[in-house]
Amino acid sequence: MTSNLSRIGFGLAPLVALLLLWQAASAAGLFPPQVLVAPADVVAALLAMWRNGELVAHLSISLTRLLIGFGLGAAAGLAFGTALALSRLAEALFGPLFQALRQVPVLAFLPMLVLLLGIEERFKIVVVAIAAFFPVALAAFDGVRGVPRSHFEVAKLYRTPLLPFLGRILLPAATPPVLTGLRIGLTRAWLVLIACELLAAGSGIGQMMEMARQLFRIDVVLAGVFVSGLIGFLLDRGVKLIERRTLRWKAA
């Protein structure tokens, strides 16, 4: 118990130091109040948006986009990476293109996607799906390729059908790298979604921050930064907790 409290204390120490430094800089007037507002003003803006429902509305829209886009991208990445690992022909045909495209920043696709899809909801969902697709596909490929050959030989010996083989043998054996890919893909998808909303959206956390910037409401901008970071942290920790429990169950 004491060690856990000490670990939490060490983890919070840099955050507390940053807040104190921020408060000191704001109180000393090192920057104009339009540039650097006090932490108390950010908290007040956050509470006000929570009470009037604005924050909840923007956050629910962003999380809905994330859920749909990540679900589609992760499912497609899992299927593609598995197919690429199982088929030498598929790897020869699509492997080089996949390895080249995954090096391109997702935001580089935005101009082309805007021309193809406009700036409506499907544009944001497609961008999130692309952000999730590549890490999950790569993790699935590496995970399936790392499955011992004995699994394939036993399945062949018992003439196990393809779908049961994939669902009961192959994917469970590739669980650790796949979960890591899902964790990376989810974090990347959230970051890309916020950037996408900053550039072209009528709602969402990113759009809330952009509108506040245009109105010189730096307190609202910083509140959005805090919420974005908190949600990203919680998403990452949630997947990490699932990963830890799943691996503990496998070890047992």
Results as ranks from 00 to 15, higher is better:
S3W: 12
S3R: 14
N4S: 15
R7M: 12
G9N: 11
G9L: 14
G11P: 03
V16D: 07
A17V: 15
L20G: 12
W22N: 11
A25K: 07
S26V: 03
A27N: 12
A28K: 13
G29S: 07
G29R: 10
L30V: 09
P32T: 10
P32L: 07
P33K: 13
Q34G: 09
A38N: 15
D41R: 13
V42W: 05
A44W: 03
L46M: 14
W50G: 14
R51Q: 12
R51M: 05
G53H: 09
G53M: 04
E54K: 15
E54I: 14
E54S: 15
V56P: 02
A57W: 15
H58G: 08
I61A: 03
R65D: 05
L67P: 03
G69P: 01
G69E: 08
F70E: 01
G71P: 03
L72Q: 00
G73H: 04
G73F: 02
G77C: 10
F80D: 01
T82A: 05
S87T: 08
E91Y: 14
L93V: 15
P96Q: 10
L97E: 02
L97Y: 12
L97W: 13
F98K: 07
F98D: 00
Q103D: 00
V104W: 01
V104P: 02
P105R: 11
P105H: 09
V106S: 00
F109C: 05
V114K: 05
I119N: 02
I119S: 01
E120Q: 14
E120K: 15
E121I: 04
K124T: 04
K124V: 03
A129P: 05
A129R: 04
I130A: 01
F133S: 04
F133Y: 04
F133A: 00
P135D: 06
A137E: 03
F141C: 03
D142F: 09
D142R: 13
V144A: 02
R145T: 13
G146D: 12
E153P: 02
E153I: 07
A155L: 09
A155G: 09
A155D: 11
K156H: 05
K156A: 07
L157K: 07
R159I: 02
R159M: 08
P161R: 10
L163K: 04
P164V: 09
G167Q: 10
R168I: 05
I169S: 11
I169W: 10
L170G: 05
P172V: 13
P177T: 13
I184A: 06
L186M: 11
T187K: 01
L191M: 13
L193C: 00
C196D: 06
C196R: 04
E197Y: 08
E197M: 07
L199H: 03
L199N: 06
L199Y: 10
A200G: 08
S203D: 08
I205L: 15
I205H: 09
Q214P: 00
R217E: 08
V220T: 13
V221S: 10
G224Y: 03
F226K: 04
F226V: 15
F233H: 06
L234I: 12
L235Q: 06
L235Y: 00
D236V: 01
R237I: 02
R237W: 06
G238M: 11
K240F: 11
K240G: 12
I242N: 05
E243L: 01
E243F: 00
R244H: 14
T246R: 08
T246M: 14
W249V: 14
W249N: 14
W249S: 11
K250P: 01
K250Q: 15
A252K: 15
